[in-house]
Each structure stands twice: as C-alpha cells, then as structure tokens.
Design a protein around this nucleic acid. Structure first.
Lengths: 140, 140
DNA sequence: TGTTATCTGCGAATGATTCTCAACTGTCAA
DNA sequence: TTGACAGTTGAGAATCATTCGCAGATAACA
C-alpha cells in the first residue's frame, strides 16, 4: 500500500471517530505511514520537521495518544528506551530485539497465542492485551 | 524458607561478588526477603524506614541495581507504572496482571518457553532474556 | 586499629512525558 | 460563505521515576 493511501486511511479512521484533522496531524500521519521502522516521539518530531511541517513535540505526543486510542498505531515500550510507535496494520505480532544492534524484528506464532489464552482461561481470566518480547543475540 | 535464611543467602551472594554489606543494604535485603508481593522502589523505601532503618531513596535505587546486577533480584517493568522488584528464587516465571485490580500473578509454561526458543533459533538468534506479560480481566 | 576503596545522603540533574493556558482553527450549521 | 465554538496548538512549566555529583562516612582487610 502506498504511503498516501495508508495515510488517507488513517485520516478516515480518525474522522470517523470525530477527531479533527489539523495540519499537524495530517503531517504526522504521513510520517507514520511512511515509517518502516519503529520510531520514537523525538524521531517522529524530527521527521515531521524535516518534511517542512511545523509541529511541536507536545503535539507529537498528544497526537500519538489520540492515534493509539483509536487503534491506528501501537505503542511499544522496550526495556530502557523511550516508547516507540508503529502503524497498526491489523495483524497482531510480537517483537524480537537484537540486544547488540538494537534491530527490532516482528514475528507471529499462533501456538503461543493459543497457549497464552489457555493459561489465562485456566486461572479464570481472559486476556485484554499482552506483551511478548524476545531480547536476542545472533548465533555465531 | 524463613526470611532470615533467605536474607542471609542474599548477603552471601553479594559478599561473594565483593559487594560490601552495609547497614542499609542489610536492611533492604531483609525487606526484600520478606516481600511476598512485587514492591517498587518507593514501597521498599517505606518498608525499610518503617522497620527503623534509615535508608535514603537514592541508596534504595543504588542497592537495587547492585542486587539486580548480581542476579539476586529481578526488575519488572509493567506498563504505566514504576519498576517493581522481586527476589529471584531461581525458577523463571512470567507474569499476569489483572488490569482491574492491579494484582500480579505468576505462571510458568514450558511449552511457551520452548516455542520462543524455536522461533529465535529459526531466525538465527538465541534468546538472552525475554518478557511475557498477560494483561487480563477476570471472567464473569 | 589504620587505611582506603566503597558507600551514603543530600540535593541537583536528567529524560521522557504530561499539563496549563492563552491564542488559533477545523467543522458544522445557517 | 460565514460565524460560533469546541477542539487543538505551542511554549514553557510541571511531573515522575530514576540517576548523578560530591563531601563526609564506614565496611573490610591488612
């Protein structure tokens, strides 16, 4: 999906939820739609600024929480670093972080998902959300 | 294992690693050994203070990192709250957090552990550490 | 018991994030 | 097209958890 299309679909989702699309938000949506990595608030702020959009850091944070509340993006909080964000493309996945390079990879495993649900169910609970992160090192 | 015994074994581990056992550290070790929940730094500070030991919050933090570095305790960073700590009793386990009450429960699942290792291996990595948290709600 | 490398306490510093508030601006109805 | 107004923005102050710097203690070992 091209960036513009994706950004547009973010906008639609927000509009539907009654959120106003301001110049700043539109700019951030484009930066997010173009992100192939997992940028933090400061990086998003820099990219928006580099793209010629005047957006304050406070607004970046405010917009990010609005987007998260709408389920348009996902917040990632890895150990010992500022929160990162990624567009929520519908498909759930977990993360694997190379502790040496900082590289973040994604993966899905249906069996793990199922086991988690079973564990919770056995104890009389249902899962609201979960977090699974593997901090790894490349094998030599 | 009684508290005193446990506290003593913490001390031994630290001594072996060449860490000095000061009055403050001894007090904290006892507070930690007695903890059946997952207290944060402030709570540990309060408990130590309540137990009549004069310990500053800075020292609590410093001691906690020393203990973590020695593998004596484990730091838990759940979403949206200050870090909590638990004595590391050797057995690895993951956590389940009731989003309504804040209650923290522990669980182990060998199959999940194995699947995680497999996933990492398939991608050419080995796991250094991992974090699995289930945010749950009681079923009605 | 003396020496000294390690601690401790205090308060200041940090870093990420949130808040306050006055000035602006999408949006929707007319 | 315009007006009205609730929602949004920017700038800086505030917050919160955590760490640091430094001068004065103090474990630990000779």
């Amino acid at each position: 999906m091209e960036i513009e299309t994706r950004a547009q679909s973010f906008e639609d989702a927000l509009r539907r939820a009654g959120v106003r699309i301001t110049r700043q938000r539109a700019a951030l949506l484009r930066v997010l739609a173009a992100a192939e990595d997992h940028p933090d608030a400061t990086q998003l702020h820099q990219r928006a600024t580099a793209a010629g959009a005047g957006v304050s850091l406070a607004t970046v944070y405010r917009t990010l929480s609005a987007l998260e509340a709408q389920g348009v993006i996902q917040k990632l909080e890895f150990e010992g670093e500022p929160a990162r964000f990624e567009p929520a493309d519908g498909t759930h996945h977990d993360h694997m972080i190379d502790v040496e390079t900082g590289e973040v990879m994604e993966f899905v495993n249906e069996r793990i998902e199922r086991l988690q649900a079973e564990i919770a169910a056995e104890m009389g609970y249902e899962i609201v959300r979960h977090r699974l992160e593997l901090y790894v090192r490349r094998r030599r």
